[in-house]
Amino acid sequence: MTTELAHPDDADWRVVGTRTDSSRIALATVRAETTLYEHVPSADSLEAVQPPEIDVPLRSLFAIELSFSPSLSAVGISPDAGIDLAAPKAKSQFVATLEDEGLDVGEQKRVGRLSREDGTEGRWYVLETAYPVAAGAADEGERPTVAAETHVAVWPTAESFAVAGGVLPLEAPPALESGLEVDVERDQQRLLDVVRALEIGERSEDESADVGDAGPGEDDTAAGDGA
């Protein structure tokens, strides 16, 4: 199932793939349905530096819907109450997926609160990332990677949890210095705006929490958790 975007900037993103994975946690089966998007305005430029064995673009967005069997409610667990335990695990699982793709995900830079448009509060992680580039895209003798960030947001839904975020460049590969615009603050805000509006496992108004406005740049006491 493809997750539909719900933000005015959604036309800038297009689906490049979907996948479904299953895993076991204790006595439950967890099903993860992932939709991967690429940023249309920069897709052609980035395709020139993306190694063929890596499916995740350097400027990308992902949305993951998690479901549990048996359901959390059937075993007496509330997603709202379980977010502090679920968020680090979901983040670490996604980091492992990126590393399997060939990305080098490093230290956690910060963690903050996510306040979504529906009032739900979640967690937002930002991690240092080195993105491999294709042969010929880096200067001779240099390590063939560019500096990037991985953003991972996790929040409770009506019956489960949702995960979303993306990868964004902090610099342009040498081969694209004149052809790829890098604006980190703009990319971070664009990613935040889309994630805050994502419709995954929607909650009713009565279920949505009344929380303050915060973003991924605001650290909290959980910042010591690593990938």
Rank of each mutant, 00 (worst) to 15 (best):
T3A: 09
E181I: 11
E181L: 12
I83P: 10
S73V: 10
P8A: 04
E199K: 14
S60V: 04
S208N: 11
T2C: 11
A223G: 05
S45L: 10
L61C: 01
P216R: 14
L46G: 06
E171L: 04
H151R: 14
D10I: 09
F68Q: 03
P51C: 06
P8H: 02
S23R: 15
F62H: 00
E4G: 08
D100E: 15
V184D: 08
A197S: 12
L72H: 11
A222W: 08
G226W: 07
V56Y: 03
S73K: 15
G17I: 07
L98W: 06
A32F: 00
E171R: 00
A74N: 08
S178P: 01
E177L: 03
V195H: 06
Y125M: 11
E99H: 07
A162Y: 02
I200H: 03
L170C: 03
L170F: 02
D219R: 10
S73A: 15
A153Q: 10
K89E: 11
E218D: 15
T129Q: 09
Q93M: 09
W155C: 00
F94H: 10
G226Q: 14
A162M: 01
D9I: 11
P70D: 10
F68R: 01
D100M: 09
V154I: 12
A162G: 07
G141H: 01
R123V: 12
E33Q: 08
L5D: 02
T20M: 09
P173F: 06
E53R: 15
F62W: 03
L191K: 02
R196T: 10
E171W: 01
